[in-house]
């Protein structure tokens, strides 16, 4: 078996992706009235964590960056699957949860447009699914990181590696 060299993503993409995820987690948590309650917003330079409107915008911007990278990777992965690159079980679970977060997040954004209407039950369900999927993915991602679980399984040939 070849070494698990990553041919889906470039290092700079991974840095941007990880940065956007960090911002998404922070601005997502900042949607809850916790940062002010627990004095985090009192730290110098952290006042923004208690600004709901700022974090709302920040969450959208970070989501757009994340979606850009995700779409690029998804396309690359689809093409490379021909060369027997497959998601591992751990990777499949994480990608599925990630998709749920993206889809529910998209519906959350649509819900915020006055032209669109979702019933109260649907609205609450979308929000809870977004929150739950985020929390579960966080736990599984942490476990995968500690246990050294990779997203993908194996590669077919050296020729698939980027130069």
């Amino acid at each position: 078996m070849m070494s698990q060299k990553n041919i889906i993503s470039h290092p700079w993409e991974r840095i941007i992706f990880k940065s956007s995820i960090t911002v998404l987690i922070l601005s997502g948590l900042a949607q809850m009235p916790l940062f002010k309650r627990y004095y985090i917003a009192d730290f110098p330079g952290f006042a923004w964590t208690a600004d709901y409107h700022f974090n709302h915008v920040l969450h959208y911007i970070a989501a757009a960056v994340m979606l850009f990278i995700t779409a690029k990777w998804a396309l690359t992965y689809t093409k490379k699957r021909k060369n027997k690159i497959r998601l591992s079980i751990s990777g499949s679970i994480r990608v599925s949860l990630f998709l749920i977060i993206i889809i529910s997040g998209f519906f959350r954004a649509v819900k915020n447009l006055p032209e669109f209407y979702f019933s109260p039950v649907t609205t609450t369900a979308i929000i809870w699914i977004h929150l739950a999927a985020g929390a579960i993915l966080g736990i599984i991602a942490l476990y995968a990181r500690l246990a050294g679980k990779n997203y993908t399984t194996s590669f077919k040939s050296k020729a698939d590696f980027p130069a």
Partner: peptide, 9 residues
Amino acid sequence: APIAGLAAG
């Protein structure tokens, strides 16, 4: 953003 990502891909 995802449309641009697909194009970049």
